[in-house]
Structures are given as C-alpha cells and as structure tokens.
Simulated scan of single mutants.
Amino acid sequence: METIKGRSPRTVQGYYTDLCTFFRFMKLHRHLSAPGLEFSKISIDDIDISFIKTITLSDVYEFLHYVSSDRQNQAKTRARKVSCIRVFFKYLTVNLKLLPENPVENLEIPSIKKSLPKYLTLEHCYELLNAIDGKEKARDYCMITLFLNCGMRLSELVGINLPDIRDNTLLLRGKGNKERIVYLNEACQTAIQEYIKERNQHLASVKPTDKQALFLSSRGTRLCPRQVERIVEKYLKLSGLSGMGYSPHKLRHTAATMMYQHGHVDVRVLQEILGHTNLGTTQIYTHVSNEQIKEATDQNPLAKVKSKK
C-alpha cells in the first residue's frame, strides 16, 4: 500500500488496525479465543492462509453487524473497513494467487449519508482571528490564516517546509503524497512573512532534523497534528466558539465555503484548490449554497401566505 500505491503511513496504519479487528472478530466468532478474554487481547498470530481460505462472505457480513451493533461504528467507518477487506482479499487472489477465488468480490460498501459540511460564518472567522494573542501570536495567526484562506488539510499544514514557499505560491503534499500548488493571497503572504521574522530569531533552539519545518513548537520541533488541534481549540474557546463542533478540518470547510459563496469560484477550480480526487467530493459545497438559497426563500414574509377559501 505504501510502497507501490503511495498511500500515506496513516492510511496504512488504518488498514492494519481494521484487519486486526476483523481477524480478532473471526477468532471470537468461531469460538477460537478464551472465554471472557478482552477483545484487544485476542491473539491473531496463528492466522494463516489456511484459515483465510475458510472465510466466507457471510462471515464478513457478520463482522459488519458486529462493528455496527457492538462497537457503534457509523456507516463511514464501516465503509472504510469494507474497503480494507476488499483490497486485502483482492491482493491475495489477484496479486499473490493464494486464493482460488475472491470470497468478498460482491461485498457492497455501506451507503454513507451525505451531510452538509459544518463551517464558520464570516463573522466567526473575524472573531477567531481577533482572538489570537500571546507569545506565539505570529505563528498561530499564520496557521489559522492559511487554514481559512487555502483550505488545506491538517496533515498538509504541519508538513510544510520552508522551501515549499515560493513567492506567492505554496507546495502542499496531500493524501497519497500527491503534490499540488496553492496560491497565497495577500493575507497569507503577510502572515508568513511576519511569522518567519519571529521564527528566525529562535533558530539556535531548532532541532537539526526540523530545520526545514515551517511551523515549530516552543521546543524547536515540528508541530504535530495534535498540537495544532489544541492551538485551534484554544482560540475557538477564547472567541466563544468552543462546543460548536469546530476543528481544523472545519476551517478547511470554511475556506472552501467562503471561496464558493463569496468568491464565486467554479467548482472544478475549487476541486483543484482542495486537492479532491473526485469532483463529487467538492460538489457538497454547492449543496451548502443551495441550502442557503432555500433558507433565504423561506424567510420571505409571504412564504406562508395562503389563498383564503
């Protein structure tokens, strides 16, 4: 997955976890584990190709029922598990030819309910930016400005290196190590320049392995995703926006919504900016606009006026 298909280590780890869960379930399902043993303690070291050959499509459906009822997995999580199992068995059947036929070839992916993305209003964006203060103000303001203007993912933000910044453009590395260029508007360029001035005053404390990282912690190491999440949570709280379901990913939604609604950006251009592989993923932002049109129409004072009988 990582070497040939170019999937990220995080995706590979997710597949690994899903397969472990599946095989532990199979041991439990077939009464091959000690009674009362904690699920995570079930050993799968003895799983071999002979055991895998006995797995049927019905077993997988039992597994999906289990993760839904016992582990409360939502449709999106179950769909990821289905994708993992399908890829795994296809690899064993087609690539390694260890199975005579693929038992999950007809396994369907659970339908995922499409919900409108949650995003900050323009007023909320101003409140969030105005709340940024303190010792790391320049760094934190720069990060949140990039989130709100470029619509980048959390992993893309923490992965930015200094050479990736080229005048008014920024190179991002997205899912599957796919690279794309985003343009930096005036606000982003100014925020980056101000932060780099501050950053360069503390170069002596930067760890050698993180010299190229744009965003650094107070200890001189590259910021990790969880640290950025805490920083965003901090300013959401200071601006009175905590407890509303906002997160760094919601800031990405906000950027996309602002560009589509206020900038009238074409959906295909938006797809390029966000780094979406499928246009369908981007089109959810057009539904946001349609929902607002509906709400505006419903607010018409004549909306509930009916003909007198």
Score class of each variant (00 low, 15 high):
69 S>Y: 10
17 T>S: 11
45 D>C: 06
240 G>A: 03
293 I>L: 13
110 P>T: 02
172 L>V: 09
84 C>D: 04
189 Q>W: 03
204 A>V: 05
304 K>M: 07
128 L>W: 11
266 D>Y: 03
293 I>C: 05
52 I>Q: 14
292 Q>R: 15
10 R>E: 15
108 E>T: 10
257 T>R: 02
65 H>W: 12
126 Y>N: 13
91 Y>V: 07
283 Q>I: 02
44 I>W: 02
239 S>E: 05
263 G>E: 09
184 L>F: 11
171 L>G: 01
81 K>H: 15
47 I>W: 08
50 S>P: 01
30 R>H: 14
199 R>V: 00
229 E>I: 09
108 E>C: 00
206 V>C: 02
80 R>F: 08
191 A>C: 03
121 T>P: 00
217 S>Q: 08
299 Q>H: 15
50 S>D: 15
219 R>V: 03
65 H>T: 14
83 S>R: 06
9 P>G: 09
107 L>N: 02
197 K>W: 03
121 T>Y: 04
57 L>W: 07
263 G>Q: 06
143 M>F: 00
217 S>R: 07
270 L>T: 06
44 I>A: 05
78 R>G: 01
159 G>R: 08
165 I>F: 06
253 H>I: 09
40 S>D: 15
230 R>Y: 13
78 R>D: 01
2 E>R: 15
47 I>R: 09
173 R>I: 15
38 E>T: 10
181 I>Q: 10
145 T>L: 08
144 I>H: 02
299 Q>P: 00
242 S>M: 06
5 K>N: 14
113 K>C: 00
207 K>N: 14
60 V>Y: 05
110 P>N: 02
206 V>L: 08
160 I>H: 05
193 Q>D: 07
82 V>I: 04
85 I>A: 04
27 K>S: 06
150 C>S: 10
135 K>W: 13
66 Y>S: 05
152 M>Q: 04
11 T>H: 03
41 K>P: 00
308 K>H: 13
225 P>A: 09
43 S>L: 01
300 N>Y: 12
117 P>T: 04
5 K>Q: 14
62 E>Y: 12
140 D>P: 03
250 K>A: 15
189 Q>R: 13
18 D>C: 00
124 H>P: 00
167 D>L: 13
153 R>I: 05
285 Y>D: 00
135 K>A: 13
198 E>N: 03
156 E>M: 02
167 D>F: 11
31 H>V: 12
144 I>W: 04
142 C>N: 09
236 L>E: 09
239 S>F: 06
187 A>R: 11
279 L>Y: 00
53 K>D: 07
256 A>V: 01
92 L>Q: 05
47 I>C: 03
173 R>W: 10
135 K>R: 15
258 M>G: 04
156 E>V: 06
66 Y>T: 01
42 I>G: 11
223 L>H: 14
135 K>D: 12
35 P>K: 07
29 H>D: 13
171 L>E: 05
27 K>C: 07
219 R>M: 11
48 D>S: 12
195 Y>S: 06
34 A>V: 14
184 L>E: 03
269 V>Y: 08
13 Q>L: 15
86 R>V: 12
130 N>G: 12
52 I>V: 14
74 Q>K: 15
241 L>Q: 07
45 D>N: 12
294 K>W: 06
